[in-house]
Structures are given as structure tokens and as C-alpha cells.
Amino acid sequence: MTEGNFTDYVKIHVTSGKGGAGSAHLRREKYIPQGGPDGGDGGRGGHIILRANHNMWTLHHLKFKRHFKASEGLNGSKQTSTGADGEDVYIDVPLGTLVINTDTNERMKELLEDGEELIIAKGGMGGRGNNHFKSSTNQTPRYAQPGTPGEEGNFTLEMKVLADVGLVGFPNAGKSTLLSVITAAKPKIANYEFTTLKPNLGIVEYRDHRTFVMADIPGIIEGAAEGKGLGHYFLRHIERNSSLLFLIPADADDIRKQYDILLDELKRYNPELLDKDKLVAISKSDMLDEELKAEMKVELDKDFKGIPYMFFSSVAQTGLMELKDKLWSMLNEKSVTD
């Protein structure tokens, strides 16, 4: 999937179908000149329904089609025949899509299960035919109910990337390079900040043909939790990741300080993010010789006491299998405990 085809935020306008009118027909047949009412009910108008689809990864299909209208229910007819219901309109969205009523700012639901549905605009009810209104004092009612109008509204769809591992780091930490090396994803890579403007997903092939999904979340900067830069736009994608991989380059001025800043941004955005499994990976370690790496380990053992860390290099392709092993272990332990 190219970055240009990845869309994770759209606004749509929907109109459900109007209900059909009930019939005021009176039975008039040969030899039955004064038959009673036999008008049928009108059909229900079509609903507008969102449906989660695990085969979808983006909202790109809604980028250029944002108006949806369901058909009206048909009117009732004689012999108490009910009109056909209007056809429902289904809008498929990826798992992890949050639905917000733009008109009321209500956060309605987050669709997380395949096939899960949410009616965002109910079709109007069909009117009742005159057959419902006959009584001992009014045996030939000549009226019926009209159908009720459908609903109309504006909705915002926000997609949060569903992945097993989310890459967290400052711009230029090497996240896109790692993803390009251990998956078939081809993210944009360049030596300037915010090269990645949309999340990139890749499938990591592990031992015995097993796989897991990794997401390159665009780089965080200080103040991201307050929306600085593209902060909120980036951070919401981390909420749905099972585990977090913190990437910090080996040439960083202070590795522990960078980790603390990243952790603080996540905490201020959503404290629950700190409950996820975390692994610190020191990228670009091909720049280190064994003596320098040994010196750094002494300091890192003190700074990251109780926090797992490891060295790797995407360019030299060293430490990648060990990184996969550790991530798989984290994910497997998490699935067992869950």
C-alpha cells in the first residue's frame, strides 16, 4: 500500500430512506360492493449501516465518495399487501474505525470485530394502512398513515491502525528503514524530518511461516500530546497496537532522555498506553565498534533497569533475527495472558 493510498480520516454525509405510505384502499369486488378496508402498510426506508471488514486497511475508498443515500420504502397496497422495505446501504470500513457524529460531536462506537455493524441513519418507518383503523364505530376508514422521513446527518470516520507492533520514535530514528528491511513494505525514506506522513503497515515473516504485523507510526516530537506538529494525528494510531517498539538511534545525545520524552508524550495523550509491552531498540548500531558498544551497555544497564533493550542495524542487517525473536516472545506471552 502506498502512502498516497492510505486514508485514515474522512467525513461523510448520509441520508436514510423515507418510509412508504400506508394504503387507504377499500375492498371493492364483484358481489362485495361494500367491502371493508384492506389497505396494507408501507415499507421501511433503507438504513445506512457501517460494517467492519478485516480485509480493509484504509478509508481511501471513501475519499472521493462521501454522500450516501438509501432508497425509500414502497407504499402499501390493496389486499393488506405491505410495501417492500427500502434497500439498506452498507459502508465497509477497516477494523479500528472510530465513528463520530459530526453534528453532535458524539463518539458513537469503535468497530473492532469483523462483520460488526452500526446503523448510523435509520430508515423511516412505514405508515400503517387503513386496515389498522377499522373499529365498530368506524368500519370503513378512508385514511392511512404517511411514512416517516428518514434521518440525515454528517459523520466523521477516524481509523486507528490495528497492528501487533507499533514503532515509536523521533523523526529520523530509522523506523521506515527497519520496516523496509524486515517486511515487504516500501515506505518513503529520506534524511529529513517527517518523511513519513501516514502510517505504513508491513507483515513480518517469522520462523515456521508465522507472521505478525508491524506499523511505522510517523515520528513524535516534543509537544505531540498537545497537538504540536501532527501530534494527535500520529498518536491515535498507537492506541490499537499490542506492543510498542521504541526506536532510538545510537548517535542520540542522550538515549534515556529520548526514551523519557517519548514515554511522557504517550502518557499525556493516553496513560493507558504505558500498560503496553515495551521494547527499546537502539538503531544504527553499525556505527558502534565493540568497545564503544560495551561502554554503552554499562550505562544502559543502569538507565534501563527493568526495561528490555537491544542493539540492531537495519543497514548492516545485524540483530534483526534477535529483534524478531524478542517481539514474537512479547506478543506470544501477551496473547497467552489475555
Rank of each mutant, 00 (worst) to 15 (best):
D85N: 14
L178Y: 08
L74F: 13
P249Q: 00
G229Q: 04
G22Q: 04
I120S: 01
V336L: 15
V89A: 01
G42W: 05
S23G: 06
D277K: 14
Y259D: 08
T80S: 14
D8T: 09
R27G: 10
G202F: 08
Y9E: 09
Y269E: 07
K134H: 13
M214H: 02
P249I: 01
L167F: 07
D208R: 10
H209K: 12
L323S: 05
I217H: 00
H47W: 12
G17T: 04
G127M: 05
I48V: 07
G76R: 02
D8G: 13
L111W: 08
F194M: 00
L178R: 07
F304H: 08
F68L: 04
G147L: 08
K326H: 13
N105Y: 12
I119S: 02
L50T: 01
N191P: 01
A121G: 06
A173Q: 03
K78T: 12
K122Y: 15
F170P: 06
V336D: 13
T318C: 00
K65Y: 00
A252C: 03
L230V: 04
T102E: 15
D164K: 03
V161E: 11
G202I: 03
N131K: 15
V204S: 02
N53H: 07
R128T: 09
K65L: 01
G73W: 04
A173K: 01
I255D: 05
S23P: 03
E205G: 11
K278I: 12
T183I: 07
R240L: 02
E239V: 14
I282A: 00
N101I: 00
T337C: 02
P271T: 02
D301R: 04
G126Y: 06
H232R: 13
Y259R: 05
N154A: 10
I100K: 01
F304M: 10
V213E: 13
G127C: 06
R142V: 14
F68Y: 10
K198D: 10
K18E: 14
G153S: 03
Q34H: 13
Q258S: 06
G126H: 03
N200S: 15
